[in-house]
């Protein structure tokens, strides 16, 4: 009989220094023990506790709509052509806390080009698995399941946007979005959708979960922006998880400190309106 190991397997990768921050990464315990993944419950410790039910093998990803090469793919076939690299990114949650995480993944742009989006494709939409048996949080209508996120195509093609399959050199633990998740470091964490089963190219802006749930509070773009407060709390500062002084707050940077790379994507846009 085939046994499935619960210990995350090590991955072969190269370090990408150019796109990595020199800041000290959060510990494995912090990164894997304090998560927002409402599919497993709304408490921060719920995902670590309940995500064991998720079966990530076999895993299928559907790629469809506005692209020349749509289809249903086994995860292995999705991943095969992409060499893995490590990117140490800041992650800024919309709840005003942040971490530094050493992701293992590859550029989303490289995957998108394989599927040849058509000239009508303006956005990429991502969908999380919907299976209340494996994801007990989906038994409650906390959000309109399945979870949907999206990027404008030019954002998705930006070299900082990656698909991650691991962290700290190992496969992703389920609570961090195994087996395949998005990481967009200049946007609030909720944009970085987890456990992806569908990647869809569309002409219309995707109807994303949090923007549908509370349109006044969460926009489609959700770029980290200290100048635009969440209606219920300030976004000017953040608390770095695991900081030696656990009381300290630090200023939040525009685009989470990735402004030099990505600000050009939004030239001419009023970011207070398109928050």
């Amino acid at each position: 009989m085939l046994t499935v190991s619960l210990v995350p397997r090590p991955l072969a990768f190269q370090r990408n220094a150019r796109y990595s921050t020199p800041e000290k990464a959060n510990s494995w315990a912090e990164v894997t023990g304090y998560n927002n993944f409402y599919e497993f419950g709304t408490g921060k410790e719920d995902p670590a506790q309940h995500a064991g039910r998720l079966r990530t093998r076999p895993w299928t990803v559907v790629v469809d709509d506005e692209c020349a090469a749509p289809g249903r793919f086994a995860l292995e076939d999705i991943l095969k052509p992409h060499p893995l690299e490590e990117r140490i990114y800041r992650l800024r949650c919309v709840e005003a806390w942040s971490m530094v995480i050493p992701w293992i993944g590859f550029a989303l742009a490289d995957l998108i080009r394989r599927f040849e989006p058509t000239s009508r494709a303006k956005y990429v939409e991502f969908t999380t698995l919907h299976d209340p048996k494996q994801m007990p949080g989906q038994r409650h209508d906390v959000l309109d399941w399945p979870y949907v996120e999206g990027l404008r195509l030019d954002e998705a093609l930006h070299p900082l946007a990656i698909l991650a399959i691991g962290l700290y050199g190992k496969e992703l633990p389920n609570q961090n979005g195994a087996p395949l998740r998005l990481v967009v470091p200049w946007k609030y964490g909720f944009k970085s959708i987890k456990s992806i089963v569908r990647i869809r190219f569309t002409e219309a802006m995707p109807r994303t979960s949090w923007a549908l749930s509370a349109p006044r509070e969460y926009g489609f773009f959700a770029n980290v922006n200290p100048e635009v407060d969440h209606p219920r709390w300030s976004q000017k500062t953040e608390r770095r998880i695991g900081s030696s002084n656990f009381l300290a707050r630090q200023p939040t940077l525009p685009f989470n400190g990735y402004g030099d790379e990505v600000a050009g994507l939004y030239r001419g846009m009023n970011l207070a309106r398109h928050f």
Partner: peptide, 12 residues
């Protein structure tokens, strides 16, 4: 045990 009960974000 008491410190771990405060989790990764003790202030919150």
């Amino acid at each position: 045990v008491a410190a771990r009960a405060l989790g990764a974000n003790p202030v919150e």
